[in-house]
Amino acid sequence: MSANDLIRTQDLVNNPVPRIPVCLCLDTSASMMGPPIDELNQGVQLFFNSIREDTVASYMAEIGIVTFGVNVACIADFASLKIQPNAPLLQAAGMTPMGEAINLALDLLEARKKEYKDKGVEYYQPWLVLMTDGVPNGDPLQLARAENRLVDLVNEKKLTIFPIGIGSAADMATLEALSPRRKPLKLQGLKFKDFFVWLSQSVSQTSQSRPGDIVPLNSNGITSWCEI
């Protein structure tokens, strides 16, 4: 028996790659109209492009997008970029029902995790990126429920949240209440691209990590363009 005959490629099991669910929860209210929504669209597109260019991350990252404006909607359900290669176009209009949007994002994350478990797919701690330029004005009960859920998940180390305020009108106090471990960052001007470059690099880093690895998801890499 030659060494080549001991273990052949066809003898091995085919495990699906572990997934990194990333949910972008984005404010598309009327106040985002004009340059902010254009910059945000370019930033999200850049995020998709950067992940796609990384062979490992493109298989592992699953991006979902929830927007809040005229209504609260999931405009892209969790899927890898092999299935969902292009970012959807965001349009600004309406109010800021942030609580409702966060609850929808968390429901979708829970549903996706259940699918992973049912199918024996390993997954990493989910990420939630929350971006807003204003004050939440949806149902206060929904916002309170969202806050409770986020705080519990973050404290139980079941979710990583990146709260980002856009412009001077962003309600940083509410963002801070939603994120017990990570201080919200205020985007400097409209530098969405820099943030999404950093985010895609963090996804790439996480996709190559092994059990026991610590992937630093601190804001050091992005403080140069954020106001804290």
Partner: peptide, 16 residues
């Protein structure tokens, strides 16, 4: 390579 996360079972090549 040898453990299926989906079926929680081992690849037969280990017996070989």
């Amino acid at each position: 390579s040898f453990y299926s996360h989906q079926t929680s079972s081992l690849a037969g090549v280990l017996a070989k």
